[in-house]
Design a protein around this nucleic acid. Structure first.
Lengths: 232, 232
DNA sequence: CGCGAGCTTGATGCCGATCAATGCATGTGG
DNA sequence: CCACATGCATTGATCGGCATCAAGCTCGCG
């Protein structure tokens, strides 16, 4: 259960620490929490106290405006951090909902503050994580602002397979944890459009689609879609 | 030229510090830099060394993918921070282009790291700023993913007026620093669509539009657009 | 077995992109 | 000072991609 023996330590917060630094990090991450599929780790408006590192499982984060409009802002998998949204206002500004039974490591934020004042490596790494989150969001803005339906889905799938690969899974075969509707919400599309794009990819031999079982047959073709297809 | 006498200090990085803390912050923010209209403060790929606080002026940040696609990811005004994108990879991931002659305060990042390890107020505030940036981006994702053209423009205008108001300007009268095309890029629309939406708002008596001179006549109506108009 | 949640597929319509022309300010050189 | 160029904005006409509406279909589960 210790960070030092966690197979995600290279992806998570405590990257490249000395053994003694690691001890202090482990003291900070003392508690774990299970979240059953469908339950929320936190919800909009909840008081912010901690960040959460996903040990196992899969989450979505979503926001909703006063009227019913809502939007999935991201999908998070093992090794990724949840809760950064809460730092700014001391309240969470989105819901984090588990898409499968999950286990998270609880990182009390005030302890992270204290410790990262002492361990500059930790400080540096935490800042990097926040910065990368900002950069990721910019990428999504590009996707939502300028790509067409199939391009969006291609980008989404490549992003997923890449992250799975980093975690040692096959880059060609994956099981979607989320519904077509959730994918659509993330990509700014309706579920029917997502479904049609999947079918199209299958017709064209880019994918093999069996419900949520996906096999990527032609990653280069997906990549080509994401890049050049504005058709110059 | 000192932070302590800067009229933006309540918006910027050095919020709520003791005089002696403020001295140390000022020592960190030793240099200023002017950026002529149209010039870049930094560009994608530039080495990341510093954050920049806008003293006077106006910027846009934009990213572009390998093919020509590009996207304005934000507009920044006095008191706001630029360059957070660079922390994650030690290189900037977007262009920051000045939309009018501007002056920025240069904050060497390694000094900010050092100082925020000593001043927990500074540390806390810096984290808040990054977190708010993430939350802002999520708001833009909601806008891009689920709003229609006029709703997007209404949200954009309200956001602008609100930020201007915080800085002591009128909330009803503003001069746009950016072109229709830049607004369109930010909102995921074409410039013609932006132009039409402006005209529509003027017809409906919500705005008075003279090129880039905008007068907001009915802010509540704009707000209503942003909220309820999904038409249930 | 039958129900329901999620997925697929088809038909139609609308919003915003695209193409194209004109208008309007600012600036430059003759 | 005017003729002309240039960049930006407006407006109209047409087109296309995605949303919407509407059936079926599949699969897991009580």
């Amino acid at each position: 259960m210790a960070c030092s023996s966690c197979n995600l330590r290279e992806l998570c917060l405590p990257v490249s620490m000395s053994p003694e630094q690691m001890d202090r990090v482990e003291a900070m991450v003392a508690t774990r929490r299970t979240v059953a599929r469908g339950d929320a780790l936190f919800r909009t408006g909840d008081a912010f106290t901690s960040l959460y590192a996903i040990r196992t499982g899969f989450f979505k984060t979503c926001i909703s405006s006063e009227d019913g409009r809502d939007q999935v802002t991201g999908f998070q998998m093992a090794g990724e951090l949840l809760g950064l949204d809460g730092i700014g206002t001391d309240r969470h500004t989105c819901d984090a909902v588990s898409l499968e039974d999950s286990l998270v490591c609880v990182i009390p934020y005030h302890m992270l503050e204290d410790l990262s004042r002492e361990l500059s490596d930790l400080q540096r790494h935490f800042h990097r994580i926040m910065s990368r989150e900002i950069v990721r969001d910019h990428g999504v803005m590009l996707l939502l602002g300028s790509m067409r339906a199939e391009e969006r889905l291609a980008a989404f799938l490549l992003n997923l397979t890449q992250r799975l690969q980093t975690r040692g899974f096959s880059s060609s075969s994956l099981v979607l944890r989320m519904t077509r509707e959730e994918i659509g919400s993330y990509l700014g599309l309706k579920l029917e459009t997502v479904s049609r794009a999947f079918s199209k990819f299958q017709e064209d031999g880019l994918l093999e689609v069996k419900q949520r079982q996906i096999r990527v047959l032609a990653p280069e073709a997906l990549q080509a879609l994401v890049n050049g297809s504005t058709g110059y």
